[in-house]
Amino acid sequence: MNLPKPKKQHRKNQNPYTRILLGIELLFAAFFILLVYLVFIVNPSQNKQTKIGSTYMTMNNSFYPVLNEQIANYIDNRHGRLYNRDPALIVDKQVQELNSFINQGVNAIIINPVDGNSIKIQEALHKAKTKGIKVIVVDSQMKSDRYVDCTILSDNYRAGQLCAEHLLRSRKSATILLLEHYSAYSANNRIQGFTDTLKKSPNHRNFHVVGKINTYGQSEITLPLVEKALKNGAKFNTIMALNDQAAVGALAAIDEVGVKRQIDVYSVDGSENMKKLLGVNHNAIASSAQTPINMGKTAVRVAYKLIAGKRVPPKIILPVYLITNKNINHYNVLGWQ
């Protein structure tokens, strides 16, 4: 038996309100697609993750991990990405890191150069600039700032001055050993501030630099070199170290050799290790304190401003102050300031 086929329902018999609702839905869908297009296509910066590369002469110095932590926190809070590398005081390795940042397509590079005189580093920064990458130098400087957007420093010259001024108040004469890092501009500025202040003193003839050692600012390098100098009979009663790491190595060498005479040790940083020795080790006298926390926060904010096309000063100098074995109780010895 053949059953009659059901009649097809023609669209013209549909409820007119259904067709109106369908039209409204299509209109909203088109509007949403257009909105997505405007946000993610027309304005790509909203869809692009900010990427920054950071490289410091060495991470074997608590100053730089603390500085970098401030940068990392700021970037993480803005859902960006940080590439951090450690050249371990090797110029060629830092150049490789810079090229890696360029290949990663970073928006900015924050660098503490292994050697501010290095042509290789300068060429790598030039390459970065041709790619539109912003360059921020921290805690030191390049010989030429041609390819640098901003240099952020502690007042290194003043740091050396503060140590010299304290020495002049404390002693009527001194024979001085300088612990240096020849290729680091920041270190050279500290030592220059120290020696210039002594030379300008009315009693400058009573203060003599009797030796210099290139320590690279590392405790493990400083210790045996100062120990050797002491065993060889070097006559000095004062040490001016470019940083706390070198100072700590020198203090360890003095203890190792068993020197009985007073040797005043000055330095720059205000690190946890040096602050713990001030007031405990009679040879530890003072450290001009800088703050990696402020430097890191300043550097990353400058980087984001530059990426956004805003203008920033070509150089930013951060203040320093002297922590001594007499005022150490006024400062927190746990960590950096």
Rank of each mutant, 00 (worst) to 15 (best):
L38R: 10
V66N: 05
Y56G: 00
Q9N: 15
S54M: 07
Q14E: 13
I20C: 00
T58N: 00
I41R: 07
I71E: 08
A30H: 02
N15Y: 12
N13P: 09
L26Y: 06
K12Q: 05
V36T: 08
Y64N: 00
M57N: 08
G23W: 06
N61Q: 07
N60R: 04
N68W: 01
G53D: 06
F63W: 02
L34E: 00
T18P: 00
Y37K: 03
N15P: 12
L26K: 11
L35T: 05
I20M: 08
A29W: 12
T55V: 05
K8W: 09
L35H: 01
I71H: 08
Y17R: 14
R19P: 03
S45F: 14
A72C: 10
L26N: 04
L21G: 03
S62F: 03
H10P: 10
R11L: 12
N47I: 01
P65A: 02
T18A: 03
V42W: 11
A29D: 10
L21E: 04
N61Y: 06
Q9V: 15
Q70K: 07
N15I: 14
T55Y: 03
V36S: 12
L35A: 03
T18E: 05
K48C: 01
S54V: 13
I20L: 12
A30I: 15
G23L: 03
N13F: 14
G23N: 04
L67I: 08
R19G: 09
S62Y: 01
L38A: 12
Y17L: 15
P65R: 00
A30L: 15
N13H: 15
G23I: 07
A72I: 13
K12A: 08
N61P: 02
A72K: 15
R11F: 08
T18Y: 13
F28I: 14
K12D: 03
M57W: 10
L35W: 07
T18Q: 09
P44S: 06
I71L: 09
L35S: 10
I71C: 06
F32R: 03
K51L: 15
I33T: 10
T58R: 00
K51Q: 10
S62N: 12
G53Y: 06
K8N: 11
N60I: 01
V66D: 01
N47E: 09
V39D: 02
Q9E: 09
M59R: 07
Q9F: 15
N43P: 00
F40T: 04
A29F: 14
F63T: 00
Q14T: 13
K12V: 11
